[in-house]
Every structure is written in structure tokens, then in C-alpha cells.
Design a binder for these strands. Structure first.
Length: 203
DNA sequence: CGTTGGATCTTCT
DNA sequence: GAAGATCCAACGC
């Protein structure tokens, strides 16, 4: 049976714990026609708000772009990067604590034909294992763009469903990717992935 | 198989 | 005006 993660799941304080628990859960984004497109979360990263040099909200920085991260947990933060890609984050913790979890990779579950079509570009096809194996790729495959920023994860456009909880020995942890500018925080082991899963982004 | 650089544009300085 | 929570194609070995 289908069960959306509750508001309470996202409102908790322990962002590391939330990130670890998101592994194995299923992200669902229906098409405009109501067709189900979904994938299991197999890789994510925790960003710890004001205290985290890698976070957009480091030091309490608050702009139009990251405003949603200061709101209540259980909403979506989507931002545009490198002139070409969107990245999908889950806002956690309560109001005024801008913690987020970046979704970095999915294992396709439903709507894989739709993902293939979205990821196909100028006559080229993408191998299935590359459809959602990175933060920029999965937003294309799932059809997530800036129009999803601020969306409620308990609404009907995008949500996350509960699933079997992974054991600790099925989860790996390591430094986050692409944040070399983050000084003392760049080596914090706040990236989590499902050990051995082929859809984890390549190193 | 490893490395390099181009694409492309929003956001903040 | 510069850099960015990326991806991929093109090259060299």
C-alpha cells in the first residue's frame, strides 16, 4: 500500500538521520496526464544550514533563491546550476532552520519509458543506468524544474513514499561532491548511498 | 581508462 | 563579472 512520508518525518532535527532514512524511499512525480513516474532514492547528501560552509544558507545567508529552505520541513527546494541543470532538495527541520537533503541519484521504478524519452537528446539515447544516476540527470528524468520550488511533499505534484528501512550495513557514507570551496566542511562524511547500487552517481 | 574543456545562465558580489 | 551542490564529448595514452 502507498504511504506518503508524514510531515513529522521531515520536521525532525537530525538531518543526518533523515538523509540516511531517505535511502530506499520512493520519490514520485506524476506526469500531467497522471502517469506515475518514480524512483528509489539511492544517494543523497545532507546540508546543515547556517553551520555548513557548503550550504547555500551558510552563516544565515538568506536570499530569494534559498528562502524556501528557511520554511518548514516537507517542502521541495529546486535550484538552477551551471547554466543547464536543476537540483532537487528536500527541506527538513522546522521553520528558520534551513537544513536540506540533496537527492543525488535514483533507481528508476515506474515510468521508465517516460524517463528515456526525457533524457534522450538530439537523436541520442541514454543507457538506462544513466537515466537518474546524478543530481542533474534525475531532475530531467523526473520532469522536475524551477516550477517545483516550494512544492509541498504532502501534496499531489511530488511526494516520497515510505519503504523498507535499510540496515546500517547497507549504507555507505563519504564526503560530498563538488564542494571543494567549503573549507573545513568539505570532508564531512555527509553523503550517503546504498552500497553496491549501480545507480549511484559515478565518482 | 583518465583528463580536459565546453555548454550555458542564474545568482550574488 | 565570476563562479557554481553537473554532465558529456573529445581527446590522449
Amino acid at each position: 500500500m502507498i504511504k506518503k512520508l508524514s510531515r513529522q518525518f521531515y520536521l525532525r532535527e537530525d538531518n543526518i538521520q533523515i538523509a540516511r532514512e531517505l535511502l530506499g524511499k520512493t520519490l514520485v512525480v506524476p506526469t500531467d496526464d497522471g502517469e506515475r513516474v518514480s524512483g528509489r532514492v539511492v544517494e543523497c547528501e545532507a546540508y546543515m544550514g547556517q553551520a555548513d560552509r557548503a550550504a547555500h544558507s551558510f552563516g544565515g545567508r538568506r536570499t530569494a533563491r534559498n528562502e524556501i529552505t528557511y520554511g518548514a520541513g516537507g517542502h521541495v527546494y529546486v535550484f538552477f546550476i551551471y547554466g543547464m541543470y536543476f537540483q532537487l532538495n528536500v527541506v527538513t527541520h522546522t521553520i528558520d532552520t534551513p537544513h536540506v537533503v540533496l537527492i543525488r541519484a535514483l533507481e528508476p521504478v515506474d515510468g521508465i519509458e517516460i524517463m528515456r524519452a526525457r533524457r534522450a537528446g538530439n537523436g541520442k539515447t541514454t543507457p538506462d543506468k544513466n537515466l537518474t544516476s546524478g543530481p542533474g540527470k534525475l531532475t530531467i528524468a523526473m520532469g522536475v524544474d524551477r516550477g517545483f520550488n516550494g512544492e509541498d511533499l504532502l501534496g499531489d505534484r511530488i511526494w516520497i513514499e515510505d519503504g523498507k528501512k535499510l540496515k546500517d550495513d547497507e549504507i555507505a557514507a563519504g564526503p560530498r561532491v563538488g564542494i571543494d570551496y567549503a573549507g573545513e566542511d568539505k570532508d564531512k562524511p555527509w553523503r550517503f548511498w546504498v552500497k553496491g547500487n549501480p545507480f549511484v552517481s559515478r565518482k
